[in-house]
Design a protein around this nucleic acid. Structure first.
Ligand SMILES: [Mn+2]
Ligand SMILES: [Mn+2]
Ligand SMILES: [Mn+2]
Ligand SMILES: [Mn+2]
Lengths: 220, 220
DNA sequence: ATAAAATTTTAGGCAAATCTAAAAAATATT
DNA sequence: AATATTTTTTAGATTTGCCTAAAATTTTAT
């Protein structure tokens, strides 16, 4: 019911790594947590004993129903704190993650539910990621990769998939954030770069690399 | 420069225990932290090696200048979070301590300074304890024990020295909190009980035991 | 189908933080 | 001053979480 900081970091990392296949490997998890494969194997034994994952030695692991529920709780805390830091404390977009990485481990349910209420039950964090509600449910709206969106469309930035400091620094410089409305002026097939024009800004071009990491919605 | 949760809890406990004499004993610290004397001795060796305390085996210990500075930082975080929980998240007075006990260990300076600013640089926490500023300075205003205050005076509750659940439950029932203004109607020498009348409330009597744990200011 | 390479696990060790039981030292009592 | 009591420290274990090096297993290449 109550897990250590280390256990929580492992659970959350597995949650983020298991995409559709649902299976995570020892090496991948070690890389994600900047730790050694041997340490991962140790922890997997413990999480299996606690029934948070199913684990076949040599064949990877996946969260159990209980593990997933636990992961959603941690993600909820992380994203609510990110929202708080950005909205209330005026943190820059790119700085919220590091602090939330620690705040997420303060696991008082009462604290988080009251924080959620205080913030007005936000649905998305500052990076556009959905915030699970207290029952573990979250929005999953249809988003399209900016690089695959047709020209001459007005879209709204909803999510950025790469959240490295470098990426966020670039977005900040370009004044692109979650909620920014922009028009796709032209697409160049030579290098797949795009000319875009954010509302109330001059048009400029962005690389394919960047466009592949920005997700947009069309509605409205 | 950066200390473990356990080290921080020890440092803070020493800070609270060392009154005027300035010297804390192994048994007292063990009792305060619900741990064993042997564990305290182990940790004292470590804190001494890190120059946070001066420590003479068998003769107790006290914080060094560096240790005191560190302790003030932890106390600052603790009390700012208590203020946040009470003022912004509407926590009951008696519930803030437990959660702050964990939040205090998230030690980002930027986070705490921005939180302080967001809260409007409060000078006292919900229990009336002074909050150190980012340089470690705090108010130390003249407070008097309610039991030793003359009758027919209008005073303001500024601090409660006993912060047990039982005490806070009684104060809550009596609707007495930090900032409550009240008049001392009469003092009974038989049992040292007091008749008091909070503003906008009926008069009632309180025991000497309670009156010895309530501190008040006269100004204004 | 073997051999080579990559991945994962096991074995053994280490540091932090705790504990119990025994020894040592300080303090109090006669 | 000697003895008893209390306090504190030391010795030796235990648990958690991590590591390196070696062994086991799976996967890939020939
Ligand atoms: Mn974390
Ligand atoms: Mn985020
Ligand atoms: Mn604490
Ligand atoms: Mn307090």
């Amino acid at each position: 019911m109550n897990y250590s900081v280390s256990e929580e970091n492992y659970i959350k990392a597995i949650f983020h790594l298991q995409g559709d296949s649902g299976n995570v490997t020892t090496n991948d998890l070690a890389a994600a947590l900047h730790t050694r494969p041997a340490s991962v194997t140790d922890m997997m034994k413990k999480l299996k004993a606690k029934k948070l994952i199913s684990y076949q030695p040599y064949y990877g692991f996946k969260l159990s129903a209980e593990g997933r529920k636990t992961a959603l709780g941690i993600v909820r805390r992380h994203r609510l704190w990110e929202y708080f830091l950005a909205e209330k404390l005026n943190f820059d977009w790119e700085d919220v993650h590091e602090v939330a990485e620690h705040l997420e481990h303060v696991s008082s349910k009462k604290l988080i539910d009251k924080l959620d209420e205080y913030l007005g039950f936000p649905k998305f964090d500052p990076h556009g990621d959905p915030i699970p509600d207290s029952a573990g449910h979250m929005e999953s709206d249809a988003r399209n990769m900016l690089s695959e969106t047709e020209a001459h469309q007005m879209v709204t930035v909803a999510y950025v998939s790469n959240q490295s400091k470098e990426m966020l620094a670039l977005l900040k410089h370009r004044k692109i954030r979650i909620g920014t409305k922009l028009e796709i002026i032209k697409k160049f097939s030579f290098d797949q770069s795009l000319e875009i024009k954010p509302k109330n800004q001059q048009a400029f071009s962005i690389s394919e690399t960047l466009a592949k990491n920005i997700f947009v919605t069309h509605e409205q």
